[in-house]
Amino acid sequence: MMQNQDLLKNTMVPIFAGILLSFIVFYQFTHTTPLAQMMLGDVHRNQWISHFDQSMEGQNPWLRNYIAFTGLVGSIRPEIIYLEAMYDDNQTPLLGNQDYILRGTAPNCRYWSFVVYDFNNRRIEPYEETIASFHRIKLNENEQYEIIITDDLKKYPDQQAISHAGNDFNIVMRIYGPKESYYKNKHSVPVGSILPLNYYAAELDN
């Protein structure tokens, strides 16, 4: 009996602990998780993180591995900046049973877009409804965008909206041909605010 307990304590427990630890570490580099965001993001702006120079020579192997699972060929300066968010402004995960409003100032660049992906970093179908692009989004008089993220575009026929199709999601902002000063002052990259629509309505009521 004692021998069995010793065997369990000295052999099986360390093996299972090792497997569990390996899985926990590996998972961070294959999915967009809070730990992965904390470990890999080199620019944090509110709930947005960015990895400048993903594909530059000398980039660290952890980030390379993460990129290999979430995309493949990443960005380099001075051409592309990707920002990613998985929380709203209240640090709550972006949920498929909520509608959100995304607001912000358009970046100074050649092209920008927001695209919604599911939590496994897969495209959501129909993909044409998951993108808000500077080619099609109208800015208001303050040069700001206002985009609703919902499970059903028909709920907002007169507004600019994109679909998460009921999936918990993350959102990627792409900035192509950015103003060069964004690289000098990483915190000058304009990021959006994301709030649940019901939160916003409650604020208005107050």
């Binding site: 699972f69 695209v115 992906y117 970093n121 495209r123 993909y127 993108i131 080619h135």
Partner: peptide, 17 residues
């Protein structure tokens, strides 16, 4: 083809545009 990228493992987060 953008319509054929959703099941491609190496292109998990393509930009639809």
């Amino acid at each position: 083809n953008p319509a054929c990228l959703s099941d491609v493992a190496s292109s998990r987060k393509p930009n639809p545009d």
